[in-house]
Design a protein around this nucleic acid. Structure first.
Ligand code: MN
Ligand code: MN
Ligand code: MN
Ligand code: MN
Lengths: 218, 218
DNA sequence: ATATATTTTTAGATATATCTAAATTTTTAT
DNA sequence: ATAAAAATTTAGATATATCTAAAAATATAT
């Protein structure tokens, strides 16, 4: 049985090993877990003993099949609980992450599978992130950063590259939600800021914002 | 912020101090928490430092107002999660306790209050135990042990004095559920076993079973 | 190629929650 | 009122997860 701490490390290593295509470094893990490098080293030894990661001293780690499966189980649980809180309990999408960080560690496969069923087997969480199925399969979506669209083109907002509270609140203020149709009306050459048009509003977003909005091109 | 372990001790002290009307003993707590008396002593010191219990060395403990309020918060959470699992996810009443032991420790008052709302503010959990409200008020039910009824009298099954898996499975086998109307048809003088009649069945239960069935007299 | 900087690991502490064994206090029985 | 029994606490360990500071390995820059 994995501890909460072990599960958190697996989840973080999982996300880091997809960002870059090399072994995940001790420092990167320390930064994400908000711990020190020395603590990470200790944990990597433990995860390695449990056959959850392949760890090469000074070189970095990657998840084994077993580690990856367990990481995906935790991610599945986290995202399903977020769906529950938003869809059934009426929380806003920026209010659910911290609580899901706790709920994700409840150990009961049956609970998660029934929750999945109860929610109608959703494929994406409230932030547009895909929910792994029971076997660990993840739907991969075919989205682009809004910053990649050309002037005059349209996209449907389907996900976020960053789901921080600050960004979610920014989107709330701008009345931007998943599913919204967005038109690129202009791109400023100087700073790559983007003038967009949504159902009711027209406004400019920074290049950074545009890079964090994932859209399906239509 | 209370640890899971601290919360479990509070819950157990709460239930023990209602069973008997004296200070709760170290050994009784040790038995319920499945730890050793020495571990309990350590924890009692900690809870005392946090003003959650009044602890007199060698004499026993009782909860302070603060301790009692926190105990009731955990019990509320536990029982609401049990309602959720049974009413919304379709679990049987004997399948939810262990998972609720984990869920009860998730720290979010907002989550519990919204869950309460979502479930329709239930007053009792799937085992007939009362659910404290947000302020810590507990509906006290006016029930009797089935063993107290006289021959020929009727009762509605409203609760259980014991909710162990074994007992719940026994009741499943006998097709006895909360809300059932039960008639006492005979009481055996020799062993106080009780012949009862439910909607469709007539059978004998032991004195011990009769003492663990809580009924409203009609 | 070597010195310097950066990263990672090791060594040794701290905090929580548990244990066993020994000491102490309280209770019970004669 | 004492002695024996039972309950409780203390002392000292162990396991997990973290930390700081020092040592070791790797990467970078001249
Ligand atoms: Mn999240
Ligand atoms: Mn977590
Ligand atoms: Mn329960
Ligand atoms: Mn618990």
């Amino acid at each position: 049985m994995l501890s909460q701490s072990e599960e958190n490390y697996l989840k973080i290593i999982f996300s880091l090993q997809f960002e870059e295509n090399k072994l995940v470094s001790t420092n990167d893990i320390a930064q994400k877990t908000k711990t020190k490098a020395s603590s990470v080293t200790d944990m990597l030894k433990k995860l390695s003993d449990k056959k959850l990661v392949n760890y090469k001293k000074y070189r970095g780690v990657k998840l084994t099949k077993l580690g990856e499966f367990n990481a995906k189980k935790v991610i599945r649980s986290h995202r399903l609980w977020e769906c529950f809180m938003v869809d059934k309990l009426g929380f806003a999408w920026n209010e659910v992450h911290e609580t899901a960080e706790q709920l994700e560690h409840v150990k009961s496969d049956e609970l998660i599978d029934r929750l999945d069923e109860f929610l109608g087997k959703p494929k994406f969480d409230p932030h547009g992130d895909p929910i792994p199925d029971k076997e660990g399969n993840i739907a991969k979506s075919n989205t682009f950063m809004l910053s990649e669209l050309e002037i005059g083109h349209f996209g449907i907002l389907e996900g976020l590259k960053n789901s921080s509270d600050d960004f979610l609140k920014y989107l709330n203020n701008k009345k931007l939600a998943l599913g919204d149709k967005i038109k690129v009306k202009n791109i400023e050459l100087f700073d790559n800021s983007v003038l967009i048009k949504t159902k009711n509003y027209e406004f400019t977003i920074s290049s950074e914002v545009a890079q964090n909005l994932l859209v399906k091109i239509i």
